Computed example of a mutant assay.
Amino acid sequence: MATERPGASDGGATPQEGARTAQQIAGELRSRIDRGVYRVGQLLPTQRELGADFGVSRDSIQRAMRDLQTEGWIESRQGSGSRVIRARRIHTPKARAGQPAPISLGPLISEAFEAEEVSLDACCLTAEALTDHVGVQADRVARGEVNPRSISLRLLLPSTEPKPAFPAAADDPGDTRPYERWAAMVEFHTGRLRDRLLALQRGKFVSDVDVKVRRAPVTPTHKLYLFNGSSALHGLYVVETRAMPLSDGTEVEALDILGLQSTLFHFEKTAFERARLIHNSLVQKVK
Rank of each mutant, 00 (worst) to 15 (best):
P220S: 14
L156M: 09
H266W: 05
R83Q: 10
R58C: 11
G174R: 03
D172A: 06
R192A: 01
S247Q: 10
P178H: 02
S80Q: 15
V186N: 06
H222N: 15
H133R: 08
E273A: 15
G229C: 09
L264Y: 02
T221S: 10
F205D: 07
Q201N: 14
K285T: 14
R143L: 08
W73G: 00
V141I: 15
F166D: 01
H189F: 08
G203F: 06
V238K: 03
R214T: 08
R35I: 07
A271C: 01
G41V: 04
Y38P: 01
E251T: 13
P220E: 13
Q99M: 12
E187L: 11
F205R: 05
F227M: 05
L156F: 05
Y179V: 07
D195F: 04
A271F: 00
A64M: 14
K204C: 06
S104H: 02
I90H: 01
L130A: 02
Y225P: 00
L50F: 14
G174K: 05
R177G: 06
R194V: 05
P148R: 04
E75L: 11
G18F: 11
A275T: 10
A2F: 13
H91I: 06
Q201L: 14
C124L: 05
F188I: 01
K285H: 11
L108W: 06
R20Q: 11
G72C: 06
E273K: 15
G72T: 02
K163M: 14
F54C: 06
A101S: 14
V186W: 05
Q42S: 13
S82V: 09
N147I: 11
N147S: 13
L68C: 07
A97C: 09
G12Q: 12
A142G: 06
V213P: 03
V283F: 11
S57T: 11
C123D: 00
A19L: 15
Q137H: 09
D256W: 09
L193P: 02
A138W: 02
A95H: 04
E253Q: 05
H133D: 11
G27D: 12
Q16D: 12
E114P: 02
S247A: 13
Q24V: 13
I85M: 01
S231C: 13
A169G: 05
Q42Y: 12
R88F: 05
G174L: 06
G55K: 03
P220T: 15
S159I: 06
R181P: 00
A64N: 09
R196A: 05
Q23H: 09
C123F: 01
G41F: 02
R86E: 08
T219A: 10
S281T: 06
E28Q: 13
S207M: 08
T126Q: 00
G72R: 02
F113V: 01
R194W: 04
P158W: 00
S150F: 04
P164V: 03
I61E: 10
R181V: 05
Q62P: 04
Y225G: 00
L224W: 09
G235Y: 00
H189G: 01
V37I: 07
L236Q: 07
V134D: 01
G249F: 11
V238P: 01
E49K: 03
D10T: 09
V136I: 07
M1D: 15
E28C: 04
V118Y: 00
R58P: 15
M244E: 10
G18M: 12
R30H: 12
M1C: 09
T70Y: 03
P164T: 09
E161N: 07
A26H: 13
L258H: 06
P107N: 09
R77F: 13
V239C: 04
